[in-house]
Design a protein around this nucleic acid. Sequence first.
DNA 1: CGTGGCGTCACCCCTTTGGGTGATAGGTGA
DNA 2: TCACCTATCACCCAAAGGGGTGACGCCACG
Lengths: 214, 214
Amino acid sequence: MGHPKPGTTIRVLVVDDHPPMRMGLVALIKNQPGMDVVAEASDGEEAIEVYDDVRPDIALMDLRMPGMGGVEAILAIRKKHPDARVIVLSTYDLDEDIHRAIQSGAKSYLLKDMPTEEIASTIRWVFDGGDTSLPRQVAERLTERSRREQLTERERDVLEALIKGRSNKEIASSLCISEDTVKSHLKTLFAKLHVRDRTEAAVEAIRHGIVHLK
Amino acid sequence: MGHPKPGTTIRVLVVDDHPPMRMGLVALIKNQPGMDVVAEASDGEEAIEVYDDVRPDIALMDLRMPGMGGVEAILAIRKKHPDARVIVLSTYDLDEDIHRAIQSGAKSYLLKDMPTEEIASTIRWVFDGGDTSLPRQVAERLTERSRREQLTERERDVLEALIKGRSNKEIASSLCISEDTVKSHLKTLFAKLHVRDRTEAAVEAIRHGIVHLK
DNA sequence: CGTGGCGTCACCCCTTTGGGTGATAGGTGA
DNA sequence: TCACCTATCACCCAAAGGGGTGACGCCACG
């Protein structure tokens, strides 16, 4: 494979569920010399399909989309095409989102409020073989996230149930464990999130994108 | 004033803090016969200024923007120009956002995941003097909201403090009232939000856009 | 084979929370 | 003026939450 030589046109796949945003990204890219949009997709599944068909040089991908989200799409694409270069373009700079995107193999993580030139130059950078490079703001969030201890699977389960408004007793029975065990998980959960109680835990989890509402 | 005759070009102001989205909206509108973008703004303050300068027929406005948000901008614009026609274009279909937008005088509330034709046709509809008409999905949310009892000012205060993770005692001292009064407000708050406890209240408030994080 | 992380559970104990009831005072509007 | 809403506060009580400590089995990793 390798990657195309300089002078070649960069073939981009645009993935976003908002039609006007897709339109803007297409316009943005087509305005750039040496860049072209070869396909569009409006959700994760479509992105995977289309990627297979057109084999773009770069996929510019939104994260939050109905049905299959960006992270799953990136994972699926990179499983079949390990050298796929995906750049995430998100509305949110939530540390957990950034972390998940980079973990799944995204080459960069841009925000929609960034200037169009930054988007274009990142596409070029990644196409030219540039290694993962994040905007300062995004990189800062990522280190924020790294300062937070990882949650275990069970802690996540409890956290998700908590956000559904369940009491300890209800969490216990829904997870088939004792209430004392729930409390035990909560204790470590609070410590890891640096909060004092479940309400703060819920808000922090939402704020950082650790769990998504709906 | 009145509004321009048919055959005239519809002069649109585009307000959004995301450059590529702005690009898409501009492209979208310029592609429409009889429509043109006469100015752009990237936040509320700028929108108010620019509106004054260009007096567009329609302002297409995002809600969540850094600094002054869409609602405040709409209020300010309509204060000076009571016949201003503002259409909100938001990412979110949160009932409280919709309610606030319509209350503040927006003529419609569209979502960014809607097809571009719907955006164009709504602009035309509003320009032609059409009264507030909302997409089904948005209208449904709005009736959802109307089924929920209004919160009083004090209840909002308590709710906001609650979401900051404060205990009843802390809320009491921060609002300079007794803890019993806080509890009293919480009781009615829970009833109005149809929840059992503070954690649920926090999540529901965030979910419905009653309070915004950060 | 030991060490450490994870998940499980059981106590104890105190604080916080939330439900019920009711009272007072100011303000609004019919 | 009277009714109603809001904000304020008090008191009682039961339930839920949260901190501390310790323990046991399992499993992966060095």
